[in-house]
Design a protein around this nucleic acid. Structure first.
Lengths: 219, 219
DNA sequence: ATTCAAGAAATTTGATCAAATTATTGCCGC
DNA sequence: GCGGCAATAATTTGATCAAATTTCTTGAAT
């Protein structure tokens, strides 16, 4: 039964599952993450769960609480400013690098992903929106072939994932940032500068949304 | 015997030890890192070693090789460019943020660290240089109180640590970047702009050194 | 007879689990 | 409140299994 499962080790699968739980906000900020809890929830052994937790802690997705426990971090204004600063330098750069490698089939794939984003927004389906939005951005970034910067971007997304989910739940999915149409138009036109500007706006908008939620104490 | 050691869990100690081995170039680029090897070398159990490896892999300090093994990554020009780009945005920003929190005692401590750097350079002691240089930069960065950006900087340093060691071994310690005097003068003068420029030069110089070594095939 | 290659055995290394140990938390009686 | 006891959870070890690599063997072709 584990014919194909045997290719991917349990600790990797466990990591991916826990990572998605954080990334798509199925764990809210402040939620404690216990080893034993995950052992029974994901029914994996203790070692794979431990490794997944360590990896995500190293990526900033989880925070050690001093007393050997870890929890999903709560975003503060200070932390958000740092995330925004880093995103606004790294991700536009990734878009610029990706622009040099864009092919019609890739643009089509991005279009499909963005259609999913639109549908999720219209349906008010937040989990789907978060997943599709993430997929859109990283499909683009992966084309940059800049692994180091993509790693940094991934880590940053993990840091605001849980809070973004909360923000969406409060404000609904209407006011969500979506400069993807602009971005796609720029890609089709082969205009790297316009692509960079679209991505930059998208990020700035998203970060502002979270910033306001923090300022008004909603998170 | 482990009376005070018991406060810090083994997996944490193991992580720090392995991290320093990478950071200060005691493992050279391309070197394989085996679990069992570390179990006997660091004499820790298998689980702590596994966790240390996972954490460092997540930080980009180690690279999975497809076949369940990990190794110290070999720097390529492409990767170095990304590291340089990220360092040149993150670390000057950290210096700028730190400038607002600089106190005379901290500046004195930085001076002491830089003296150690100078002594190591004059003595041609590369391991000491690497350690003191790292300590100088991160004592400054830590003052920024910007944990997210410091995490990113740490990860970047881990990525070039092993190669920097090789470069130093080739070129000797004379041509090593050291704009620390400028930086310290700027701190004493309370000139944040000058501090940022000094740190920027220091980084640019260091990255260029490594870039040349890669270009001439020395790494 | 020598060389080379394919395949099998042995060795090394990684993955996973279960049990024993140790720390932390929270409750209960004082 | 305070101190200790029970419950919960994290840490660590060692054993066992699985995968990958290396070494050894064997047999066919030259």
């Amino acid at each position: 039964m584990d014919a194909e499962n045997r290719k991917i080790p349990t600790h990797e699968v466990t990591y991916l599952r826990l990572r998605d739980m954080i990334l798509y906000g199925r764990l809210e900020p402040g939620a404690p993450v216990t080893i034993q809890g995950l052992v029974s929830e994901l029914d994996a052994g203790m070692t794979p769960v431990r490794e997944a937790i360590r990896r995500l802690t190293a990526e900033g997705a989880l925070r050690p609480q001093g007393n050997r426990r870890v929890a999903v971090p709560q975003l503060t204004g200070r932390v958000l400013d740092q995330i925004a600063f880093a995103r606004l330098t790294v991700e536009p750069k990734l878009a610029e690098l990706a622009a040099a490698h864009l092919s019609p089939p890739l643009i089509d794939r991005l279009q499909v992903l963005d259609n999913t984003v639109d549908r999720a927004i219209q349906a008010g389906n937040i989990p789907d929106y978060l997943e599709a939005n993430h997929a859109f951005h990283f499909a683009l970034y992966d084309a940059s072939d800049a692994v180091v910067l993509v790693d940094i971007a991934r880590s940053l997304w993990l840091r605001f994932g849980p809070s973004l989910r909360v923000v969406c739940a409060h404000y609904g999915s209407d006011a969500l940032p979506d400069r993807h149409h602009e971005a796609l138009a720029a890609m089709r036109a082969g205009d790297a500068g316009a692509l960079v500007r679209a991505i930059t706006s998208d990020i700035a908008q998203g970060m502002d949304q979270v910033r306001q939620a923090i300022a008004t104490g909603e998170i």
